[in-house]
């Protein structure tokens, strides 16, 4: 029995503990991301933002959560019950499971899989199902149109995200997220990857259905998009999922382009290197998240055909071309990463 406990139960408890360690701070971060969003947007529009609940309105996210929790869950009688309930759960779950492979620091990762970046890409490409299922199961025109729009948008921008990831993999020579961060990059590699960084951030905005690409929930034409029929906790799960995806996409940006937990700009001052990697990682994620909020407060919403044009006619050819450019530059400089034991 003791043997059984050692071999099977102990690892399970260890993994469960680690999962809690990731999920709980994440939920907190998500809650305060909504607060940050309202404060940042308020500041940009010369307003106060939430300032009533607690000092500086800091307890506002908790109040919002409690309010949503206390509301009645309404399931439309014409809806497809099972799928209607399943959709928000799926969205929320998918937003959570991606974090299993995110490295927060050297060795600070739940599952250090070989194909981490592919796993992230796979999970993020699944996000579309929650929205599509919600749109269809609601049996409402607004929700359905929102769902269709969102699906088309996410599928389109995934293509360019995939190609951007390929350029990064070319430079780093590994699909493992830790190795992607640890790979040495020279200045011209950073320079080469910079346009792809911009493409990636814009695609991330589109992939997470955020402004200026928030057509799926364009309230001026679709009331609220795929989640009109949802209320209470089912709505809250969609909401949580959306914000969690924002944090996830920021984390991906940081890992792929901004050097993860390393000190920014390769500085080696002692008071900077003293800071734990986790702190740098979080700070960098916050910086990218600010771009999300900033663009929401400043940019008007795209029109649907413009969105598709940007995805298919500009980003796709550009990133495809850039794969060739990066590969060519790497071969020219003899810098193509080679596995150990293989001659170039």
């Amino acid at each position: 029995m003791a043997e059984f406990f050692d071999i099977y139960m102990l690892p399970v408890f260890e993994i469960l503990g680690k999962i809690l360690l990731i999920v709980l701070p994440l939920l907190g971060a998500m809650a305060y991301l909504t607060y940050a969003e309202r404060k940042v947007m308020a500041a940009m529009q010369l307003r106060q933002g939430p300032n009533m609940v607690g000092p500086f309105g800091l307890l506002q996210p908790l109040a919002d959560g409690l309010k949503l929790f206390g509301k009645e869950t309404i399931i439309p009688s014409a809806s497809n019950r099972a799928i209607f309930v399943l959709a928000p759960m799926l969205t929320f779950m998918l937003a959570l499971i991606s974090w299993a492979v995110i490295p927060f620091d050297v060795g600070m990762v739940l599952a250090d899989v070989n194909v981490g970046i592919l796993y992230l890409f796979a999970v993020s490409s699944l996000g579309v199902y929650g929205i599509l299922m919600a749109g269809w199961a609601s049996n409402s025109r607004y929700a359905f149109l929102g769902g269709l729009r969102s699906a088309a948008q996410m599928v389109s921008y995934e293509v360019s995200i995939g190609l951007v990831i390929v350029t990064v993999i070319l430079v780093t020579g590994s699909l493992n997220l830790t190795e992607i961060v640890m790979a040495e990059r020279t200045w011209w590699m950073h320079l080469l990857l910079f346009p792809m960084f911009i493409v990636f951030v814009i695609s991330a905005l589109a992939e997470t259905n955020r402004a200026p690409f928030d057509l799926p929930e364009g309230e001026s034409e679709l009331v609220g998009g795929y989640n009109v029929e949802y209320s209470s906790m089912t709505f809250a799960l969609f909401f949580l999922g959306e914000y969690m995806n924002m944090i996830l996409m920021s984390a991906m940006t940081v890992i792929l382009f901004l050097g993860g937990w390393k000190v920014p700009f390769g500085l080696e001052w002692e008071w900077l290197t003293m800071v734990p990697g986790l702190i740098w990682f979080v700070l960098k994620i916050c910086a990218v998240l600010f771009i999300f909020l900033w663009s929401r407060a400043t940019l008007p919403r795209y029109r649907y055909d413009q969105l598709m044009r940007l995805g298919w006619k500009i980003f796709l050819p550009l990133s495809l071309l850039w794969v060739l450019v990066v590969a060519g530059a790497l071969i020219m400089n003899d810098a193509l990463p080679m596995p150990a034991g293989v001659e170039g």
Partner: peptide, 18 residues
């Protein structure tokens, strides 16, 4: 694991969506 991820990306992420 590579085949597994490609299966999810290609079939679930793209084909099944369509």
């Amino acid at each position: 694991e590579f085949l597994a991820m490609i299966l999810v990306i290609v079939y679930v992420g793209a084909v099944a969506v369509l």
